[in-house]
Write a protein that binds this DNA or RNA. Structure first.
Lengths: 151, 151
DNA sequence: GATATTACATAGCCTGCCTATATAGTGTGG
DNA sequence: CCACACTATATAGGCAGGCTATGTAATATC
């Protein structure tokens, strides 16, 4: 049997760390003229391909008018194109442009570089701990999703 | 010597986990009629005691007008009181009310309960990994803060 | 073919953030 | 001791991102 200091998760410390990390990640996007909601839409279009307004809104859990507005902004910036669906004149197909894809790739790469640079300032043991915990944190997010739905 | 799979931090997965966790934590506050910026102000007042507008703005890294606005909202809700500083007629002293303190305590307790409930759905090994990584994540946030300043 | 439904757009409102500027109190040099 | 500079907060105006309610146009359905 392993003998080590018993450590339990301190909710406040976990909350604080997550909040601070998120703030830095968001700030990094904003410094490059992007935003978290915009990047989420671009990533969704990259992953799911051309999509309708309503489907994107559902996938990202925002209202349809919010998604309409976001897509109009992204279209003005040339990062997506909006075309009327052939076969359903009501529907809009949003699709990444080459520029949009390039911007997204660049933002993602830059964000990874930031995290790697941050990790580089840590001890090996801290990096190991974070690497080991990453899947667990994803599962914690899954669990919280589940609790939300039951609410 | 321990023999185990060598794992490196995957920046995208870490970003995704942090982003999702933050989204749930924020949603949980919003469900209770609060917001992340408002709670940050209340927590600051709890930790530092009565404070001036400018000091709060600096501590939370927002502009002075943003803090002025936030404090007016919190005052309308009865969560803080704003009094003119005795000794400097220009300055405003913002201070938690008993109600504000109670609301903050309740929100913090509820957030902890949410996290504990989520953790309860995980394996012992996941909980251990998260407990072990929490200080490392805080240090990662510190490191990113440092990188930001050097920028 | 009239009507119901669906997909998106628009209107109007809120929070939260910003910069620029006004106002009012404090402090200071002459 | 008063004009002037400075400092603390407030106000004005603007943008992003979120919401609900509702309008409009295309499609489906009976």
């Amino acid at each position: 049997m392993e003998v080590r200091t018993l450590t339990t998760v301190k909710p406040d410390l976990l909350n604080s760390a997550v909040t601070r990390l998120f703030a830095r990640l968001r700030e990094h996007l904003v410094d490059q003229g992007a935003s978290v909601p915009a990047v989420r839409v671009l990533a969704q279009l990259r992953d799911r391909g051309p999509s309708r307004v309503t489907d994107l809104a559902a996938a990202l859990q925002v209202s349809q008018p919010t998604m309409t507005q976001q897509l109009h902004r992204l279209a003005e910036q040339g990062r997506i194109v909006r075309t009327i669906d052939a076969g359903d004149g009501r529907a809009v197909r949003a699709e990444l442009t080459a520029q949009g894809r390039a911007v997204l790739d660049s933002l993602v790469a830059s964000r990874s570089a930031l995290l790697v640079a941050g990790l580089d300032h840590l001890d090996e043991s801290d990096r190991d701990a974070i690497a080991a915990a990453t899947p667990a944190l994803a599962r914690l997010a899954d669990a919280l999703d589940g609790l939300r739905i039951q609410k």
